[in-house]
């Protein structure tokens, strides 16, 4: 339970980190909070030749209001997101979700860049980035490019990041005022990875549902949007019958795994219950805000 030997470089700027990553030819690893990477090193699941530490790069831990978007630096710690007024105001759903991420000591270190790059199928931030239509800005020796959250998560612990890529910013488009929202999760113990989780943001056009997004996780290899359920509900009046139809569509669409913590059937059942609760709560919040 000790890490294998490696070289260590504390990068002082993004360019140096990206340079070192390219220089390592696929054998290097960035280290941010280390809250996922260090366990993997301690278990010797990874043997990088060099660890490139980005913690000493100045100005990578920020949350900035850029007019239409909120821009978040890759080194913004979970604790920073959890306690940020900007996040609580603009994305109450994200604020709520942060309370479910691990424990205080982990939140003090773990970063948004690390969580998205690690892409655990039961992690909150990947799901939130999908729900909030995040744009992820990536830098490598060949320059910068943007990947949407939709195109980012390819499988469990697998992303569209290529060798030599560093995630350098997360951009979240603001939501209209009065958007309804809800976040529901069940884990075995407080702070554990989720068995399943559902988040909803919802708008209305008169008395009809609009701008609905449903995010889910813990029910497959990556976080998912419940696109069928979104289609069923959008343009409809909120009613028990349409919600039931949407929940059925969700249960039909997911392919959860059986593992030590829960069976696939249990997870399929659970995600439906959570979706129902999340939809009801989000709709109630929307009504409150628009009355």
């Amino acid at each position: 339970m000790k890490p294998p030997p490696f070289d260590y470089l504390a990068a002082d700027c993004v360019e140096a980190a990206v340079q070192a990553l390219a220089g390592a030819g696929g054998d290097g690893k960035l280290i941010a909070g280390g809250q996922s990477l260090m366990p993997m090193l301690n278990f010797r699941l990874l043997r990088p030749s060099i660890l490139i530490d980005i913690n000493r790069i100045p100005d990578l831990a920020y949350i900035r209001d850029d007019g239409n978007e909120i821009c978040i630096g890759p080194l913004a710690r979970h604790r920073m997101l959890e306690t940020s007024d900007v996040i609580a105001r603009q994305f109450p759903v994200l604020h709520e979700a942060m309370g479910y991420v691990a424990h205080l000591a982990i939140r003090n270190r773990g970063t948004i860049g690390g969580s998205l790059s690690h892409a655990d199928p039961a992690a909150e931030l990947p799901m939130m980035s999908l729900l909030l239509d995040a744009c992820l800005v990536v830098q490598s020796l060949s320059g910068r490019r943007t990947i949407t959250a939709r195109d980012f998560f390819l499988g469990a612990l697998t992303t569209a990041l290529e060798e030599g890529d560093m995630l350098v910013e997360v951009r979240l488009p603001k939501l209209p005022k009065g958007t309804g929202w809800a976040f529901e999760e069940v884990a075995r113990r407080s702070g554990d990875f989720a068995l399943a989780s559902v988040a909803v943001i919802i708008g209305s056009d008169g008395d009809r549902i609009s701008d609905l997004r449903i995010g889910m996780m813990g029910i497959g290899e990556t976080p998912m949007r419940a696109l069928d359920a979104e289609r069923i509900l959008t343009g409809q009046r909120y009613s028990e019958a349409t919600v039931t139809a949407a929940v059925e569509a969700i249960r039909a669409a997911v392919e959860p795994n059986t593992d030590l913590h829960a069976s696939a059937e249990y997870r399929r059942h659970l995600v439906g219950v959570l979706a129902q609760q999340a939809l009801a709560r989000a709709w109630a919040r929307l009504r409150e805000a628009t009355q």
Partner: peptide, 27 residues
């Protein structure tokens, strides 16, 4: 446990609680 789960190794670094099994001394 040396993988962040048990909390026995928790110390404060610059005032914040952290897992000392998930940090490198060199950092």
């Amino acid at each position: 446990c040396e993988h962040g789960v048990c909390g026995a190794c928790t110390v404060l670094v610059n005032g914040d609680s952290v897992r000392s099994c998930l940090l490198l001394a060199i950092q």
